[in-house]
Write a protein that binds this DNA or RNA. Structure first.
Lengths: 213, 213, 213, 213
DNA sequence: AATGAATGAGGATTCATTCAT
DNA sequence: TATGAATGAATCCTCATTCAT
């Protein structure tokens, strides 16, 4: 493993560590991933990880930042492609589609507030939140274009509410194994057999529809 | 401490343990509450707690069940009191009011799916989910009455969506100390200074409005 | 391993743990002893040790207390046996003999202040210091009897000075392996080849002699 | 930072590193000083420190050597200034004064044997001990002059005993925070509230007085 | 039923030191 | 000579849960 001397090499290391963390997150829940695993899979020593990220949480927060960025890219692309005069269910479905394609990403978003944003320095938080705000503003504007009936300037707030909905639906749609089993075994509990895509799309439709002036 | 021989005595023990757990949950986060504390405050030994609840999570799941029940009582009462022809913002504000009055309850709801429903047996889950379904149906019906424009039969699903929104807004409105500080220190991040009541009420208004046939 | 239910059983456990710690301290330096070793040799689980001692330091502080107590017993016995009119070198030799018999004990005393008294609660410190004071007073009185020329009431202070001397001579007489080798290999450094007994006895003689009214 | 090519440049580097280490030692305990800090404050990279000192301990051993040298300078000066026929308490006070003026130095002396002399090579030890012996001999002679009643040739040994006393009193006079608090809070433990200067001066007086032929 | 002693898994983080550049 | 990236050893303590009494 060549030493990362230049700044670009270092950023490559950071990216590699993010990549490993992200891959492992697909395989198992956050708590089941330990820093040693990440280091090993990245071909580095455990201590080396801490040269690049101050804590385990900062590592995953960095992954989250990346995922956020990627998602907003996708979202913006999708919003731009929406035909003028598209129906609200179509818009909701479009937004939903950007999430359904990346379930691990949604899972990551769902633990961000409760877990990742705890053991972290102010700087990474600042970075993340600033990015988030910028993209919220930008995507909010695009949403306004796609949905002319929206009160001008309301885009970002509507997106934030949509984001809250995403987090909430994810919680409901991704139950623990026991819960999943119980629900599956009892037809009368079918109400709780929640399909993320369908439910989000439906709720989002309502949320957007209700936001129109 | 008298031995709990009769079934009613045992239920009293369970209730006492729930009460202590609930009280402690007001003071500190879930992870900071340990079974020994609960036992001590209940005047019991640590091992005794396990005669009544199989795991720490089952104890708090039981608290959650109770809180759910209480909340639905409050909600039903509030929905029944809504004047015919009440506006949607009024209804949203009414629902919001039932939550703002009990922030710890909302905090408990928010950790339920990710934490409490993990290390538990099928029975308590079954109990909880059945209760939940019944009350969802019942309150859904009341919501339909309060909001006649709703498609008949949609009440429960709308409530579920509202619940998802509650969870999501709670996540956003209750950030970690670092995040809170960063947001407070940077005026340009004011978007993230989210007031639970205001934001929920507003998003709920949209959600309900958009659900109308 | 029977459970230690009665208080006397518990004290037996504490004593057993002390005994193991003490034995291991004969074999290796403090830093090389870890709590897991102590537990294993005592036939207990690691966590069990922490039921009896809050920290590793408290465990060894407890050993120190015991050793102090034992040493003062020996010292008092020796002081009482001193013939009236005994010479100061005899007295110094008598005191020295109580230490030479237990080199590990002196080694423990030497690390007490810098190491053991760090990560400890106030209670164990209080216990230890109170014991120490009482015994200092008692042995001080005996010293005054053995050494009538001493200003009445000076016994405890003189003992404290003697104790300081013990600590200092121990530091000089127990060098690290490298230092020992270097000294052994260079005849011109023979000054530093310090024999604990001889040097202490000699310095103590001077100290006591100089304390006479 | 210019490259240190000439031997004198290198010695300058060593001196600079010693100076930084010494400064930091005034601010915090040995364990809280890490090599990175020393390097940074010296305007060097961490690895560079290891070009000049093989280990952290050797760096501080070198500081100790310097401090020893300086102390003996001061001591010799003081001993030379002692008026013929000066009383023993005056001599003891004079010696004590050379230490009270530099508490960090005494703190360094106190950890030397247990900490600094562990992870070091034979050469630095050889250097230090040789220096120490020479100065001991020299200062011992001066002490004999100041204190004619001393058996000729006993000066160095008496000084060594005095040094042991210094180490021991320092241990007792510089307790851990907990111990300090406990002692301060309990008037009956006042015996342990030891003032370094006063106690050393008093014990030293006895030691010297007792050494007279 | 109640107790509380015993268990033991579980893991992030620091930092002196090395060595490729 | 200087750098600083990389290494990896080293370990205490908590606390949910069990089970002998």
């Amino acid at each position: 493993m060549r030493r990362a001397v230049r700044e670009s090499d270092k950023e490559a290391r950071r990216a590699a560590l993010r990549a490993v963390a992200w891959r492992l997150f697909h395989e198992r829940p956050y708590e089941a991933i330990n820093v040693g695993d990440v280091a090993e899979q990245a071909g580095l020593a455990k201590g080396t990880v801490y040269l690049y990220f101050a804590t385990k949480e900062e590592l995953f927060l960095s992954v989250q930042e990346q995922q956020f960025d990627a998602w907003f890219d996708t979202l913006d692309g999708a919003l731009r492609q929406i035909a003028p005069g598209a129906s609200i269910p179509e818009i909701a479905a479009t937004i939903t589609a950007t999430l359904v394609a990346a379930p691990a990403m949604v899972r990551l978003f769902a633990i961000a507030h409760a877990v990742l944003e705890r053991n972290v320095g102010a700087d990474p938080i600042m970075r993340l939140k600033t990015l988030l705000r910028d993209r919220l503003v930008q995507s909010g504007a695009l949403l306004e274009q796609a949905l002319p009936a929206l009160t001008p300037g309301d885009g970002p707030r509507v997106l934030l509410h949509a984001y809250a909905l995403i987090l909430g639906i994810q919680s409901l749609a991704d139950p623990s194994p026991v819960v999943r089993d119980v629900i599956a075994a009892n037809p009368e509990l079918a109400v709780f057999q929640i399909d993320f895509a369908q439910e989000l799309s439906s709720a989002l439709t309502a949320l957007l529809r209700g936001q129109q002036a």
